[in-house]
Simulated scan of single mutants.
Amino acid sequence: MNTISPELNSSLLEQLFSAATHDASTAMCRWTNGQITLTLDEIAEMPLEEVSTNLDLGDDLLTMVALTLQGELGGTMLLTFDEENGRSLAASLLNRPRATTPEWNELERSALNETGNILGCAYMNALTRFLDAELIPSPPYFLQDFGASVLQQALMTQALTCDTATICRTTFRREDQALDWNVLFLPTQGLRDRLMNCTTA
């Protein structure tokens, strides 16, 4: 059952992200030959300083694919994996055994970047339709670091314009198995205000 935080309590916003998640799931299903699907669990807002604790990312090595939106209606979308799930996805997409070397090679990075691109475009296309304003994400880029450090890199710029993160919690599944992936969406204050105005109009 989807849960919306009190500040975002709007059926329109829930419909928006449900539609975006549905589009993303369809795209992921095509991209992974039917292996991966996703469903929306919750939309919530929280202070930036609480995000790391709330997501319980811990101090394990994380892999992240990030996309950014420039301008007033900007923001950042992050797709995070633990090492096991990130490596397994890359191996599946490349149709080769899971790599065991410490460093990610260029093909593995490219496979995850394209995954982030597919998810990001699905979400941004839904936002574009909803806001009637074109949102163009940057090319995805690959980051790797430890737990809170990964998240801090993404939140650093966000803190200049907004002190709140909007989180779309999702469940990713490979067949019937839940995967340890997270999608984190961080709109700028301008985009957040536009979303709020649209959902309360």
Rank of each mutant, 00 (worst) to 15 (best):
D56N: 15
A90G: 01
A148D: 11
Y141A: 00
L8E: 04
N113Q: 13
L160H: 14
M156R: 10
D180Q: 13
C162E: 10
W181E: 06
M46Q: 08
L73I: 03
Q158L: 15
R109W: 02
A20S: 07
D180R: 12
R173W: 08
L191S: 00
E175R: 08
T128N: 03
V183D: 00
L119G: 04
L151D: 03
N85C: 11
E14T: 12
A20V: 02
L112D: 00
L67T: 09
L112N: 02
F81K: 00
G74I: 11
F130Y: 13
L69D: 05
T157H: 14
T199P: 00
L184V: 14
D193Y: 05
F146C: 01
F172P: 06
L93P: 01
T68K: 15
L57P: 07
T39V: 15
F172Q: 06
R194T: 06
N105T: 05
D60Y: 05
T199A: 15
L195R: 07
A165S: 14
R173M: 13
L69M: 09
T3K: 15
A44C: 10
E14L: 15
P6C: 05
L160S: 13
E72P: 07
T63K: 00
P139T: 15
R129S: 10
Q153A: 09
G75K: 14
R109C: 01
L13W: 10
G147Y: 02
E114A: 09
L131S: 04
E108S: 06
I136W: 04
F185T: 04
E50N: 15
I43G: 07
A90F: 01
R173E: 09
N2A: 13
L78P: 06
L13I: 14
W104N: 00
C198N: 10
R87M: 01
A126W: 04
I36A: 02
S25Q: 09
E72A: 11
T21M: 08
S25L: 09
L93A: 02
L107N: 02
T166G: 06
E49D: 14
T164P: 10
L61A: 03
A126Q: 05
A91E: 02
R174H: 10
L143V: 01
P139H: 12
P47V: 10
S10P: 01
A154W: 04
T164Q: 09
T26N: 10
R194M: 12
T115C: 14
D41G: 11
L57H: 03
D82T: 03
A19L: 15
G86S: 01
L89G: 02
A44M: 11
G116M: 08
F146R: 00
A66Y: 00
W181Q: 12
W31P: 00
T188C: 13
A122R: 03
L48T: 11
E45H: 10
T115S: 13
E83P: 02
E103S: 11
T115L: 09
L57C: 09
V51P: 10
A99C: 03
E134F: 03
E106G: 01
E114F: 07
S110A: 08
D132S: 08
L155T: 09
A66V: 04
P97D: 00
M124R: 06
N125K: 05
T100C: 00
M46K: 09
E134I: 06
R96Q: 02
G34D: 02
R98T: 03
Q35E: 05
Y141N: 05
L61T: 04
W31T: 04
